[in-house]
Amino acid sequence: MISPDYVLTMARYNAWQNRQLRGALERMTDAALRQDRGVFFRSIFETVNHLLWADQIWMARLDGGKAPKGGVPESPRFQPTLAAWSAERFRTDGRILHWAEALKPDDLKGALKWHSGVLKADVSKPKGLCVAHMFNHQTHHRGQVHGMVTAAKETAPVSDLAFMPDSGPWL
Rank of each mutant, 00 (worst) to 15 (best):
L21E: 02
Q79F: 05
H141Q: 03
L51R: 03
L112P: 04
V149R: 00
P76T: 08
G23W: 13
K120T: 04
T150S: 15
R19M: 13
F41C: 08
L112Q: 08
L62T: 00
K127L: 04
V158N: 07
L103Y: 00
M148P: 05
T9A: 14
I57M: 10
P73E: 09
F135V: 01
D63P: 00
G38D: 04
A31N: 10
A100D: 00
M134R: 01
L119S: 14
S167V: 15
R61T: 00
M59A: 08
S124M: 11
W58V: 02
R95D: 01
P126F: 06
K66G: 11
V149M: 07
E26I: 00
A162K: 10
E88S: 09
K153I: 04
P73V: 07
G117A: 08
E26Y: 06
H146F: 12
L97K: 00
D36A: 12
E74I: 06
L33T: 10
N49V: 00
F78C: 05
T81K: 08
D107W: 01
F41Y: 12
T92E: 07
L8Y: 02
D106S: 11
D36G: 13
L33S: 08
P105Y: 04
G168Q: 11
L25C: 05
R34T: 04
M148N: 09
L62N: 00
A156L: 12
P169Y: 14
Q20K: 12
H137M: 04
S124G: 11
A32S: 15
R19D: 15
R27S: 12
N49H: 01
A15R: 04
K113L: 10
A67S: 14
A151E: 11
Q138I: 00
P73K: 08
D93T: 02
V149C: 01
D36R: 11
W53F: 09
W170Y: 13
D5A: 15
F163D: 12
R22V: 15
L171P: 15
R89K: 08
A11H: 03
P126V: 09
H140M: 14
N14G: 07
G65S: 02
G143V: 05
G110H: 03
A87I: 11
A156M: 13
T29F: 10
M28E: 07
S116W: 10
M1S: 15
N136E: 08
D166F: 13
T139N: 02
L8I: 01
R34A: 11
T81V: 12
T9L: 15
W58K: 06
R61I: 02
M10F: 09
N14T: 09
A67P: 06
V118C: 05
P68F: 08
M28V: 06
